[in-house]
């Protein structure tokens, strides 16, 4: 039973559409329609209440004057004002923060996909212990962010961190590097952290696609005398393009709004003042709930603009090809 065959019957009142000769089918279709809705309704309700309504409400809040201390008094009735948006956009460091967010998201997205691709290629051919290596490589992705952020802080500490200890002892650094407390190191470090945490995610998806590439294609390339690089460029890479494009969008959206990683590593200091951390600072630092909502709204809009550009760009490219 396919969707197009049955959905018209389900969509219209059965009395008028169903021929009298097939009453059984219409009753079945109606029962199925009812059961379907009954079964998805808990999900739909949860998603509407906890996600869709709050997202829409955030738009209204961005135009209301509201202190975090009086949030219970928030009402849909207004009054509405543009002052939040104005305050947020004119605040010192706003544009710089958008720029930082972009560098952070683009760097992390591109980096994690590139590193994940290399890892997947290295693990493509089976070898003894591959399953174990594969499982271990996903550790950064599954581990709790708070725990791994603190280990990185420990490793990079200027006084007792192993990285600086090794750097000064073995690599001849004049002095320890404050990886999380100084520009421009801090931004580079949070991007590196993000790549480290999410390359396993890209690896997992690219690997799944890579394993599905038919082996006959490899053999054909081998017979034609293709070198490993040619083989990758002309055989494997085209096969992986769609999953890489999908990963790019997903990772970009996720990183653009990410809060935990930067908040835990640097607190948004030393040139890592990304937009999501600003939202939090407006809320808990200045008790400015309206400003926080406005900042969140601006963040979503900027992201939407970039997504549209990206999709347009990709659509043009596929037309050319």
């Amino acid at each position: 039973m396919t969707a197009p065959a049955t959905s018209p019957a389900a969509a219209r009142p059965p009395e008028t559409t169903t021929p009298a000769t097939r009453p059984g089918r219409s009753r079945r279709a109606r029962a199925e329609n009812r059961d379907g809705w009954l079964m998805v309704s808990p999900t739909v309700i949860v998603v509407l209440v906890v996600i869709v309504i709050p997202v829409l409400w955030n738009v209204l809040l961005a135009f209301q004057k509201l202190s975090f201390l009086q949030i219970r008094k928030a009402s849909l009735a207004g009054p509405y004002t543009l002052s939040n948006i104005e305050r947020v956009i004119l605040a010192p460091g706003f544009w710089q923060s958008i720029g930082t967010t972009l560098i952070y998201s683009a760097g992390s997205t591109i980096g994690s996909i590139a590193v994940g691709l290399v890892a997947a290629l290295a693990l493509r051919d089976a070898f003894r212990g591959r399953a174990v290596v594969r499982a271990l490589m996903l550790l950064p992705y599954v581990a709790p962010v708070v725990a791994v952020a603190f280990v990185w802080q420990m490793m990079l500490n200027t006084q007792y961190g192993v990285v600086n200890a090794m750097g000064t002892r073995l690599l001849g650094w004049d002095q320890p590097i404050d990886f999380l407390g100084r520009e421009p190191y801090a931004l580079m470090t949070v991007i590196a952290f993000e790549i480290w945490r999410y390359f396993p995610f890209a690896f997992m998806f690219i690997m799944a696609r890579l394993i599905a590439v038919p082996r006959e294609m490899d053999e054909a390339a081998l017979i034609d005398g293709a070198t490993p690089l040619q083989h990758f460029r002309h055989i494997l890479f085209p096969q992986l393009l769609s999953v890489i494009a999908l990963l790019s969008v997903m990772r970009f959206i996720m990183t653009f709004n990410k809060f935990d990683d930067v908040y835990l590593l640097t607190g948004g200091n030393a040139g890592t003042d990304i937009a999501a951390v600003r939202v939090y600072d407006y809320l808990t630092g200045r008790f400015d709930a309206g400003g926080a909502a406005a900042q969140a709204l601006v963040l979503s809009l900027v992201m939407a603009v970039f997504l549209v550009i990206y999709i347009k760009f990709m659509a043009n490219r596929t037309e050319e090809v």
């Binding site: 389900a10 739909v44 969140a296």
Partner: peptide
């Protein structure tokens, strides 16, 4: 099951996956 709006429900779930948590925070 085939029910009215199945495709819309599917799209809703996908959209939800992409809604950023930080935007949900204040509301």
């Amino acid at each position: 099951l085939t029910f009215t709006g199945r495709r819309q429900v599917n799209a809703l779930f996908l959209a939800v996956y992409l809604f950023p948590a930080i935007v949900l925070a204040i509301p």
